[in-house]
């Protein structure tokens, strides 16, 4: 089966910030969609945490994943970074293969 190279951006960010990040991605023409995944727990600067030990969803983390054309990654990355840089969060990029390139 023929596949096509794209770039995947994963953003782990506080749940409270996800709606704003989603609106930012909605304004990016090169981002045709994204997926939001709940994060069960983790360990970081403030120690171990899990979803079940949180008072509200706003205290937890979510992962936003989007796949886009590699030629647009720098423009999207700079906007995403400007949003994330003052917050708790992680941005990672990876090269992926997709089957239906017109979707991304």
């Amino acid at each position: 089966m023929q596949t096509h190279s794209k770039t995947r951006i994963d953003i782990v960010i506080e749940s409270a910030a996800v709606p704003r990040l989603a609106r930012l991605l909605d304004t990016e023409q090169s981002v045709h969609g994204y997926t939001v995944l709940p994060v069960h727990g983790g360990s970081g600067e403030h120690g171990l945490w899990t979803r079940d030990g949180l008072v509200s969803e706003a205290d937890g983390m979510m992962m936003v994943m989007c796949i886009l054309d590699t030629q647009h990654k720098d423009a999207v990355l700079s906007r995403v970074y400007a949003f994330v840089k003052d917050r708790a969060g992680i941005i990672t990029l990876s090269e992926v293969e997709v089957v239906r390139p017109t979707r991304f």
């Binding site: 409270a16 910030a17 403030h46 509200s56 706003a58 708790a88």
Partner: peptide
Amino acid sequence: YIAVPAAMRLALPQANPA
């Protein structure tokens, strides 16, 4: 510890939630 922490995480990310 519900509404204001959520608002602070959004509008004042420089503050330490811990």
